[in-house]
Measured scan of single mutants.
Amino acid sequence: ENVVSAPMPGKVLRVLVRVGDRVRVGQGLLVLEAMKMENEIPSPRDGVVKRILVKEGEIVDTGQPKIELG
């Protein structure tokens, strides 16, 4: 899985990584606000952040790609 998608609709509060960052499985990639709760979205695997496809403040839909890992 190279693309991390939104598990639920919500607002991107914070992006916790930058392009080029090495990430580990379970590491937080971003914080999504859904139903007035903050949810940290974890990396599904070890890898390197290739692209960030969302911006802080953006509203995302379920299944929308957010971060691409290499």
Results as ranks from 00 to 15, higher is better:
S5W: 12
E56F: 06
L69T: 02
E1I: 15
M8D: 02
L30R: 00
G57V: 03
S43L: 02
G28S: 13
P42H: 11
Q64R: 07
V25I: 13
I41F: 06
E40R: 09
D46E: 09
N2A: 11
V4S: 03
I41R: 00
V12W: 00
S43F: 03
V3E: 05
V25H: 10
L69P: 00
V49G: 01
P42W: 09
E33T: 07
K66D: 07
Q64S: 08
V4E: 03
E40V: 15
V31M: 06
G20A: 05
V54K: 00
V48R: 07
L30Y: 08
N39R: 14
K55R: 12
G70V: 14
I67M: 09
K50L: 15
M8V: 08
K36S: 14
N39M: 15
M8K: 06
E38W: 10
Q27C: 05
L53G: 04
E56P: 12
V54C: 08
P42Y: 12
V19F: 03
V12I: 13
Q27L: 05
V19A: 07
S5I: 13
V48Q: 07
E56T: 08
L32M: 12
T62L: 12
R45H: 10
G57M: 06
L30S: 00
L13S: 05
L53D: 04
E1L: 14
E40H: 10
N2C: 15
I59Y: 14
V25R: 14
P44I: 05
P7E: 10
V17S: 00
V60Y: 05
V23G: 01
N39L: 15
A6K: 04
E33K: 08
E68L: 15
K36F: 13
G57S: 04
G63A: 08
S43H: 02
M35L: 12
V15S: 00
K50A: 10
P65K: 08
E58A: 08
V31H: 02
V19K: 06
K55V: 12
P9T: 10
A34L: 10
K55S: 12
R51M: 09
P42I: 13
L13T: 08
K50P: 01
V15Y: 05
E1R: 13
V4I: 13
R22G: 07
L30A: 04
P44F: 07
S43P: 02
I41V: 09
N2F: 15
E38T: 11
P65I: 11
A6Y: 06
K66G: 15
P9E: 07
D46Q: 07
R51C: 10
R24E: 09
R14D: 03
N39Y: 15
P65S: 08
E68V: 15
Q64D: 09
K66R: 04
R24W: 10
R22E: 10
N39C: 15
L69Q: 01
V48A: 04
R45M: 14
G10Y: 05
V54W: 03
E56C: 09
D46V: 07
D21N: 05
S5R: 15
L53W: 12
V17M: 00
G10P: 03
K55E: 11
V54M: 02
D61N: 13
K66N: 15
M35H: 13
I41N: 02
V12G: 00
K36T: 11
D21E: 12
G20H: 06
V60N: 01
K11S: 03
P44Q: 05
